[in-house]
Amino acid sequence: MKNDLSAPDAARLLGVSLPTLYSYVSRGLLASVSNGQSRHKRYPQEDVLRLAARKSDAKRGGQTATAAMHWGLPVLETQISHILDGRLLYRGCEATTLAQHATLEAAAGLLWDDGASDYFQQNAPALPPGLASAADATPLARAMLAMAMLAPADMPHALESGPALMRLLAAALLQTAPSALPLHQQLAQAWQADAEQTELLRAALVLLADHELNASTFAVRCVASTGASLPAALGAGLAALSGDKHGGGSAAARRMLTQALAAPDAREAISAFYKTIAPAFAGFGHPLYPDGDPRAAYLLGILSTMARDKPQLAAILAVCAAAGQLLDARPNADLALAAMELAFDWPEGAALSVFALARSAGWIAHANEQAASAALIRPRARYIGRHQRDWK
């Protein structure tokens, strides 16, 4: 507590108003903690000082560092997507509105060039030779291998390559032949989904198509900025997605649901589960959505209507609600994906496959935008170790 600051003190150090301080918290730039005795939040002094240093760096860096990341700060401009007031927008179109009717292919066209062209009329590509040897690998590992097998010259930075890459990803993830069928239908066929589930898959793919500058998208843009091929950039995105703190969120949420459903006391099992992985609440909370993840709300809303004649789904949703109450947190997209995977007996890891295939649309958009800028991403580091000393 001695190292925690009150809101007025933190705002004073940062040179901002209280509303701006609170916006820093909602945007994930600053953490807040509760002292357990008061409703007023406190702010770790070290975090506040670090943010103040970053603000000072930004002022010194000037417009050049802000407008482009090469030799600047980790800030970049994009026309692709943004998160505003708890809403996710693709080129100004709200993702939840698109999810009502659009396909992933339509969302990809919007992200790539504002829907000016229909890129998905071409035929399905052939699988890279040798991918069949990876039959025992995980879906994500097969997808990464498929991207690595594509020669740089085969897939330059061009939007015309996008549909072929997405269809190859679907084939690698599902271990099927490449197909020109709509991507949500390919998932549905592989997992024997009925008509309701197929529509849910369509909506989920649209909602997950992009998410501003997340970790995997940043990795994609870094690789694309070097002039590497589009498959290489997508391979970087898949690698970043494989981490527990990114694409692994749905697997952790599934484990929580499975343990709670099997336990005599679901609430006790939920509490025990989250104590072992604290402070990360798998499936709950998102710093960019302080009032709740709209993607999760949309998908869980559909699941609620489907649960009326599906006892297993109703039980899963009851666990989701109980966990939210215990954690005092709202669900995020990871929980919705985990609930879908578990409720409909899709293969374990299906949620991550949905995530990877959907996000490939956004990755392609960001890779091409970055390549078109001709800017190399090379942020500066702030050294915090020992200063010059003699070596002994």
Rank of each mutant, 00 (worst) to 15 (best):
L200F: 12
L104I: 10
L208R: 06
A361L: 09
R380M: 04
W71Q: 15
W363Y: 08
T226P: 03
A193Y: 04
T97G: 04
G249H: 04
G362E: 03
V319Y: 00
S81N: 06
T305F: 03
S242I: 02
Q185L: 14
M166I: 08
R386K: 14
C320A: 09
F218Q: 09
G301S: 10
D309T: 07
Q100L: 10
P347K: 08
Q259P: 04
S6D: 10
A321L: 06
A141N: 12
A321R: 11
L376N: 05
P287Y: 05
S32A: 15
L173H: 12
A252K: 12
Q175D: 15
G285K: 06
L257V: 01
S250I: 01
A153M: 03
E341S: 06
W363D: 02
A321E: 14
T78A: 05
S360W: 04
R167V: 07
G362K: 08
L327H: 01
W346S: 01
L352P: 05
Q370W: 07
A282F: 08
T20P: 05
R42S: 14
G130S: 09
T226Y: 12
D265C: 02
W71A: 15
L73S: 10
A124G: 12
A151G: 09
Q388T: 14
L342P: 01
F355C: 07
P129D: 07
Y289V: 00
A322H: 02
L200E: 05
G72P: 08
N35A: 03
A338G: 04
T258G: 00
D244I: 05
K41L: 11
A333T: 11
E160F: 04
T276H: 15
G285A: 09
S17E: 11
D244V: 13
N35F: 01
R221W: 06
S23R: 15
A278Q: 12
G249P: 10
A177E: 15
G235L: 02
A67W: 14
S26L: 07
A343N: 11
A53S: 14
T20D: 01
L173K: 13
F284S: 01
